[in-house]
Amino acid sequence: MHTGRRYTPLEFFRWSFRDTILLLLIATVPTVLYVCGLTFIAIPWQPIAVLGTAMAFIVGFKNNASYGRIWEARQIYGAIINDSRSFAYTLRDIINNQQPQTVQQIFYRHFAWLTALRFQLREPRSWENMRRSSNKDFLRGRYIIPECESTLEEALKPYLTGEELRYVLSKKNKATQLTAMQSQALAALRQEGLLNDFEWTTLQGSIMRLTDSEGRAERIKNFPYPRNFASVTTYLLFIFIILLPFGLLKEYSKLGDGTVLEGYTIWFNILFSAVVAWAFHILDTIGESAVNPFEGSANDIPITQISRTIEIDMRDMLDEPSLPEPIVPQNNIVL
């Protein structure tokens, strides 16, 4: 997540530099050919204007859908924050005086669940965009993806016993198994008489809400923005960008007629065609970069920071003297 007031022009320039050069090249080729006498390559601008209007609607639809996905992801983690806190203080207040070690163990197992979930959500998918060279270049030296800097086993060690760690690592969906272990622990407390039916139902309800949030996050992670819409947008945008400079050749050629710029205004076609093409392309790219809110991009939901905030709050409920440091933005980026 970007925490600054806005992306700076330099950041945008670095992010889109390769694409900008390509767009200038696409606009230059037909302009040079037209100046060299191949005037027949010019085409009417009206069909291109119609295509541009359609592209504006399509790109707007895609960006709206992208924002919907990222906002839903933020709501999911907002629910995880609230449900984690309510689960923690309810459990603490019920059995902390009787079995404080058990409360701490359940708390730490919850930290392990948060850790396993964020590692699962950071796993790459074939449709995600972090493999793009522009995103790699933007990431390099600017911020790090914490889940790429360590292994899940290393991250889970502080929270689980050796036996629990081996058991969890042997499972496919590790976050789900940790939730199942929490449910099992609550059932054992109920059997021991430390929880009555109402208290068990209340705590189990918190576990179920956390499971629901996990499933909603996995749905966004594992179901991409529909490839048919994404493909149509890409193909139509490509056609529009290619045809745009051809459609503006005659317009810029006669723009300077009767003035001192006569014969020179054709070169404006390179700049202005590239600018219009860049505007459409960058809006589409922005939508694409935000459509996968857990992949590790600069526009992601800061699930690592949120998980650390929950851990700090829950450790504080146990009155632990040493709390982990909060995660702060690095170059205005926080994950």
Results as ranks from 00 to 15, higher is better:
K172L: 04
T28L: 15
I270K: 04
E128Q: 10
R109V: 07
L323M: 13
T53C: 13
Y225W: 02
I239C: 12
R5W: 15
F294K: 13
D83M: 06
G78F: 00
P324H: 08
A279T: 04
L165M: 15
P324F: 09
Y7T: 14
L210W: 06
V168R: 03
L178Q: 14
P44L: 02
L283Y: 06
P158E: 06
I242K: 03
R125V: 00
F111T: 11
P158I: 04
M130K: 02
I81A: 11
E311R: 13
V291H: 07
E147S: 15
M1C: 14
P9W: 07
Y34S: 00
N63M: 05
N222L: 15
D212C: 05
T304D: 12
P100G: 12
R216V: 06
P9F: 06
R132L: 06
S273A: 12
V59L: 02
Y167C: 12
D83S: 13
P326I: 08
G37S: 00
T234N: 01
R219D: 11
F17G: 08
I48D: 08
M55H: 04
P226A: 03
I94D: 15
L165D: 14
D300F: 13
P100L: 11
Y225F: 14
V32E: 02
R85H: 13
A155L: 07
P146M: 10
G68Y: 02
G68N: 11
K250D: 09
N196A: 06
L203M: 09
L236A: 08
T285R: 01
A188E: 01
E295S: 15
I312M: 08
P324V: 02
P100E: 10
T259E: 12
D313N: 11
L23V: 04
E218Y: 08
I145T: 11
I239S: 11
A56L: 04
S253V: 02
I41W: 00
I242W: 09
I70A: 11
E164M: 13
I80M: 06
P302C: 09
A180T: 12
